[in-house]
């Protein structure tokens, strides 16, 4: 664990006061390695979005602590720490300001963190657009002129502009068509390898997880049910809940069917 970049220890999050409280996260502990893609998987209400918000500092945990490169993350984060942990949202339609050009949206990140000389920033924006597979002319366009997949690429470029160590991806492809999803997932994989960034990939889609993540945390009702490598989760899951989740995935080919049947038999055998 010498390459651990982020470590979440015994995180609890309780919403509400007095009688009406909801325990959104209980005793969540996990680590993120440099260059790793860690998937956080769960159904709605599992706490997967809550943990993302806690990591991003949108709200603090009720108890427990997160360390980033051995530095404790406090509720009020410095600009330097904000820069290190960036975010790509689910809905590419709302994530970009409809009244600002693509270039201006990316430039904000450069301006806030004072990256590059002022005169070079146009150049940096061009490089970022090319890196995410968009033509340079797009910087003059408004988001409305882009497709969903192109907008998601802009969101990724904007996150990269901060030169972060970690990107939290919240269902980055679930609003996209399957052909576009494939291309975005490939882009994310490429960027992770080239830049050595770490991802926290939050999703409900286990099939996507299988093809992109190194490790998986399965969340249910605010708890980590199973935390293992992707191979173990899909070939030899220890927990009944994990099997149940995988068994519910609609599949399209025979080898998938065989794997699913194997897991759901194991699932049924538990009863």
């Amino acid at each position: 664990m010498n390459n651990t970049i982020l470590f979440a220890k015994n995180i609890n999050k309780v919403f509400g006061k007095g009688k009406d409280t909801v325990q959104a996260l209980s005793d969540v502990t996990f680590g993120l390695q440099q260059g790793e893609c860690l998937a956080i998987v769960g159904e709605s209400g599992s706490g997967k979005s809550t943990i993302a918000n806690v990591i991003l500092g949108i709200f603090p945990p009720t108890s427990g602590e997160i360390t980033f490169l051995n530095e404790k993350l406090l509720p009020e984060r410095s600009l330097m720490l904000k820069k290190q942990i960036q975010f790509v949202q689910q809905n590419p339609l709302s994530a970009l300001n409809p009244k600002k050009t693509i270039g201006a949206s990316i430039k904000l990140a450069l301006d806030v963190h004072n990256i590059g000389d002022k005169s070079d920033r146009g150049q940096i924006i061009d490089t970022l657009l090319l890196e995410v597979g968009l033509p340079i002319e797009f910087k003059h366009r408004l988001p409305a002129a882009l497709s969903g997949g192109q907008r998601q690429r802009v969101s990724i470029a904007r996150a990269l502009a901060c030169e972060p160590k970690i990107i939290v991806l919240d269902e980055p492809t679930s609003a996209l068509d399957v052909l576009v999803q494939a291309r975005i997932l490939n882009l994310l994989n490429k960027l992770r390898k080239e830049r050595g960034i770490s991802y926290i990939f939050i999703t409900h889609d286990l099939a996507v997880v299988r093809n992109i993540a190194n490790n998986v945390c399965v969340f249910n009702q605010g708890k980590i049910v199973e935390y293992a490598t992707t191979d173990v989760i899909f070939n030899n899951p220890k927990q009944q809940y994990t099997r149940q989740l995988i068994s519910a995935i609609p599949v399209i080919d025979k080898s998938e069917q065989i794997l699913r049947n194997k897991l759901s038999e194991a699932h049924n055998a538990q009863f």
């Binding site: 052909l179 099939a207 299988r210 899909f234 794997l259």
Partner: peptide
């Protein structure tokens, strides 16, 4: 064929490069 190839499989195998 492109659609089928683009669907991520639970058996893994990565995601091929497909034209959208």
């Amino acid at each position: 064929q492109a659609l089928m190839a683009a669907v991520p499989r639970i058996t893994g195998g990565g995601i091929p490069e497909i034209d959208d």
